[in-house]
Design a protein around this nucleic acid. Structure first.
Lengths: 342, 342
DNA sequence: AAACACATTCAAAGCGCTTTGGATTTATAT
DNA sequence: ATATAAATCCAAAGCGCTTTGAATGTGTTT
């Protein structure tokens, strides 16, 4: 069913039918009712491509997912992130399109997305320091919101967690409990968020005049496996740490496995604070938290990104909206006072 | 840059430029070279909507994600599933669009997707028994491939794991080790895959003439939390099981946590076999498996779905292609002989 | 009853592409 | 040289919608 057919059935011009359906005022309520009834009856929905061509808008939001060529690891938080956004999009009639691309071809992908006019705006994820994608998107004039931040430029819209503060608090929490050697198990430190987390960690140590030991600072893609291997390594050290801050729940699962295999009790023999993205399938306890954590919902961040993006698509030229979410520190049973002897 | 502008720059008609770019034979190699050079120079990319309108194809594959209204849980395997597919799509110039929808409005969403002509085909996920979506998609004439199966109808394309067989093997593996009370911690048994897994589990027990105890069979959404709670419950039972088969790694993480808290050693005091979707961020061990598992890569399934879908979009009317993947049984350290006394 | 404003409707143009059918040029056969 | 075939190119139509600008109908004012 298309507009022409529908208008013929009704014996009304296409113009009027289109206007009736789109809520324009210059059409009598009587005809509008007639048109609406017919539209529901035949389940008429305007062809998106035709409408897009005519209006110059695509009503599509793009997500470009970098796919590191070596391991093709999709981000485990992506599902939650986009789920938070999708509801907002749906309500305003936008759809979502995702494009996977080689890590080093992201810029090209954005350029093409824009050249093909297939999206009205994009959400950019996992920014690096001085991320070139930002300047490219700005040059293209394609509306975009960054999930995270990129140190280097400053005039763009973003939603980020206060990672520095979160990790400073996490580290301080452990130091307050008497821990003196606290390890860092971080995400890939090419990424801005991980850099900030390390800053927060270092800052807390420095504030107390504690020595920095790069031998107990680790950084990689955040898999269970990496958490396991790193914790295993930590436990074999001469003067081994009594605590660690970890950048993700997934890694903490691996770390816990390593502790278990070594007969160490989490929260007693070894303390852990994690950052918890509040993933739906991985709730950090329902009654009380399993892991002591800095918590910030990635679904919520996704929702905020979506709202800002839709807003700037409709009203461009507004000054950068920059939201920094404070993570809450929730205390679970993965932390305790530093063991007396070690 | 659009076709008109490009053709004016070249001093050639739009027809010829279009044909040159699309590889049609009726254009001299000389002009084709000229056109291609100019296209790259100005980064000309045909407007997707205009092209779609003209060709009647959208070059879009749709994924409809049911969002259970109560908990909004996005599927943790979705990222891997779509990553496997996206490469195939990209190579053939297709893009991916995902639509989140209320669980009970999926049928409507498919109908609308088709009415708006915004996709050339869809991948359907998480089928139930006698899933109404299948008959709707068939009626609409929208090409589709199901990830999983739906008992009830049989004439559609799908890619599924042999869940029955996998869980029969998993259960038998435990029975062979001397376990007599084996629990089942399953996914939501409204879903077809979970029904089949239960069948496999029951079949193995029945084959040995063992009693079925519905008191140690559980089913719910597959979260860490559910795994934890269920295992905790199992451990308080009078005649408690010595082993369990679990439908997901995520749940097993919760189960392991419960075991740890109770001072039980996994693989010694309690044995576990899981189903492992081979998620990229949750590898089941690198050198040797952590959990004994029936393993089948969901990324691979995604890739297969994509290939079939593109094929049937291009050549409709072929007889249903139905792929059943056999899960491999990998032996890890989460299983061992049944404890002597309990 | 004429003149005007306002409400309602419509025909047609245009969005940027593909593709049909025809026109023009060039090569080949008679 | 002429007829025929093949190669190459192009103007214009059409995909299904929105929107402009004009036309028609209705009600109000004088």
């Amino acid at each position: 069913m298309n507009l022409k057919e529908l208008s013929q059935i009704l014996g009304i011009s296409q113009t009027t039918v289109s206007r009736a359906l789109n809520g324009y005022p210059e059409v009598s309520e009587k005809t509008r009712a007639l048109v609406n009834a017919a539209a529901t009856q035949y389940n008429y929905q305007p062809n998106t491509k035709a409408r897009g061509l005519a209006t110059g808008k695509s009503k599509m939001i793009g997500y470009v997912l970098p796919k590191a060529s070596q391991n093709e690891m999709p981000n485990p938080v992506f599902g939650d992130f986009i789920a938070g956004a999708a509801q907002t999009y749906g309500k305003q009639g936008y759809d979502t399109t995702i494009t996977l691309t080689e890590n080093d071809k992201q810029a090209e992908t954005y350029r093409n997305l824009h050249a093909k006019r297939s999206v009205d705006g994009v959400i950019m994820q996992a920014p690096k320091e001085n991320d070139e994608r930002i300047s490219i998107l700005k040059k293209l004039g394609l509306p975009f919101v960054v999930h995270g931040r990129s140190t280097g430029s400053n005039d763009y819209h973003f939603v980020d967690v206060n990672n520095t503060h979160a990790f400073a608090r996490a580290t301080n929490f452990l130091l307050d409990l008497g821990h003196r050697r606290v390890a860092l198990i971080n995400g890939d430190e090419n990424l801005d968020f991980a850099i900030r987390r390390r800053h927060g960690y270092l800052q807390a140590l420095e504030d107390r005049g504690l020595e920095i030991d790069t031998g107990i600072m680790f950084s990689s893609e955040m898999t269970e496996e990496f958490g396991y291997r790193t914790m295993t390594k930590l436990l074999t050290m001469q003067s081994r740490p009594t605590a660690a801050v970890l950048s993700s729940y997934i890694m903490a699962i691996g770390a816990r496995r390593a502790l278990g295999e070594n007969g160490l009790r989490i929260g007693k023999d070894f303390s852990i604070v994690i950052h918890d993205d509040a993933l739906s399938y991985l709730p950090n306890g329902s009654t009380h938290p399993v892991f002591t954590a800095t918590r910030s919902s990635v679904g919520e961040a996704g929702r905020l990104c979506a709202e800002i993006l839709l807003d700037i698509i409709q009203n461009p030229e507004q000054k950068p909206r920059q939201i920094i979410l404070e993570a809450e520190l929730v205390v679970g049973s993965s932390t305790g006072p530093a063991p007396k002897h070690d």
